[in-house]
Design a protein around this nucleic acid. Sequence first.
DNA 1: ATAGGGTTAG
Length: 695
Amino acid sequence: MKAKSKLRQAVALLCSRSTATSEAYTQLVLECVRANEIDQAKRLQSHMEHHLFQPPDPFLHNQLLHLYAKFGKLRDAQNLFDKMLERDVFSWNALLSAYAKSGSIQDLRATFDRMPYRDSVSYNTIIAGLSGNSFPKESLELFRRMQREGLEPTEYTNVSALNASAQLLDLRRGKQIHGSVIVHNYLGNVFICNALTDMYAKCGEIEHARWLFDRLTNKNLVSWNLMISGYVKNGQPEKCIGLLHEMRLSGHMPDQVTLSTVIAAYCQCGRADEARRVFNEFKDKDIVCWTAMLVGYAKSGREEDALLLFNEMLLEHFEPDSYTFSSVVSSCAKLASLYHGQAIHGKSILAGLDNNLLVSSALIDMYSKCGLIDDARSVFDVMPTRNVITWNAMIVGYAQNGRDKDMLELFENMLQEKFKPDNVTFVGVLSACLHSNLIEQGQVFFDSISNQHGLTPSLDHYACMVNLLGRSGRIDQAVNLIKSMPHEPDFLIWSTLLSVSATKGDVARAEMAGRHLFELDSTNAVPYIMLSNMYASMGRWKDVAAVRSVMKNKNVKKFAGYSWIEIDNEVHKFTSEDRTHPETEQIYEELKILIRKLEEQGFRPNTNLVLHDVGEEEKLKSICFHSEKLALVFGLIKKGNGVSPIRIIKNIRICSDCHEFMKFASMSIRRQIILRDSNRFHHFSNGKCSCKDNW
DNA sequence: ATAGGGTTAG
């Protein structure tokens, strides 16, 4: 600290004079390079240009150039380079490394091509620059070109080439480099060993990576971090925790990289609380550590904790980056929390990151999952660059919000702009067809997945088709499709078949699907409930009782359906017939009034949907107080005189009685109701629903 | 002068 202020004083002193010798400048510039004092070096450069009336010392210029290059000060490096009278390969290499750090690949390549002479450092710089900016193919091309030109790859070259092979998951190339590394006797270099370990780990050969790691005698912190992250990437997070322990025993202190990896490992094992404890104990956290914890919570389904942690992070004056924003925005999307989502959108604008690819894609998803599909489109429209994920977010958004025409138009645009659709795109496309009952259209799209786009239909796509065929009453075709699949049918396929068979009253098919589901997972409540609902709707109460008793014997727990509504900053959650809310009395009072009013307008509660064989009055009671109705009335109590839509979110699918109720309610209260269920959106307005009663 | 590890949206 003291040395730095002394240096600053010396620079200030020299710059206060109108003359100085070339030696004096050189002396101070060297000091600046040693202390990494870029600003002071720039001051010296500018003073020198104005006051030194002799040709600048090429050595001094090279020193400055390297300092700028080291810190990625591309502009300064470029300016200086242009002024230089003598440029040797050192100068060119320094400029090249400034371009490599800038991330502009075109400029990097152009500079490389412009060079009058190239040595192995030039090649190493561009090869590292390309692999470091995720251009592994191009990096390996230059690796080959270097050898063609008769330059022997150095240790530096091999590290970057291994890195590129790892990115391409090209195990063969990696092994080939491994061989040449052995021949050249480079295995004493820890960079080489680390790069090899990483390559094997990323290519899925975790045992091979571990074998090398165990034989590495001069392990450093990076070696440990590589191995730990290798286990996370290979789906063995439990191993990381043991390795962390070993690492401490061997005298290595975990750093920020270790911490962020270990947090991910804990959260992957469902141990988010332990991750949080490790996180709290660590003193020197950076933004990546915070983001790792936010992501960890989100992946553990603990979005509220993520938002609370995000607040803590802001209180501690950490600046969120694009990764942080995209992660918290996606937590808001899962919660459908428009209040927080908009606030975070605002913060991202202030940070200048709202147009960032990651952030915008997350914002599109957030707005569409909040039912504000047009706001999602606004974000989409102003983006400077888009990728497949952006397009998919928008297409899936239109699909879930029942805007099939917009979806089809957007899909056409996507193809026109030469973006390659992937499996997620077709999940969006097919589910839009499903929600709008476009059977022929859906079949055409399904066939195009393999015919036109060279993809293999996934189980999700098959499930959409089973659903689509089943709804149009072609259950035979749906069953044949399942039989013809190249994949083993999974839980989703059979539960889709069960669901469509049950609604069409095809008891035999429903029971067949049920048997497959029990085989796959006898503890999941979904098939039991679906079968029991089917029997109940047919009045087959004996069968209902039988299913219930099997559930009881096997201790299958029905998971609770609930709805929630956000009022200002707070989330209010309701279950069916909930009486735990502090304002329960008023809610039930108002709900009864609303039901009477809607009945006067023609609404009739549909007691056929009640799943127990109980008296008519009991049936009415259990259906009238479903969670979404309670949430709606609560919203009206709190925001009764507003004009914005009432937004309700539900974790299971809406029943048809509630659906009918919401249609009448939207007319009676003259307001839009947006209900997101586990499957899709329902925009109720003027007595109609965007799903056209098809869900 | 040039090399390695962590967060990543649908």
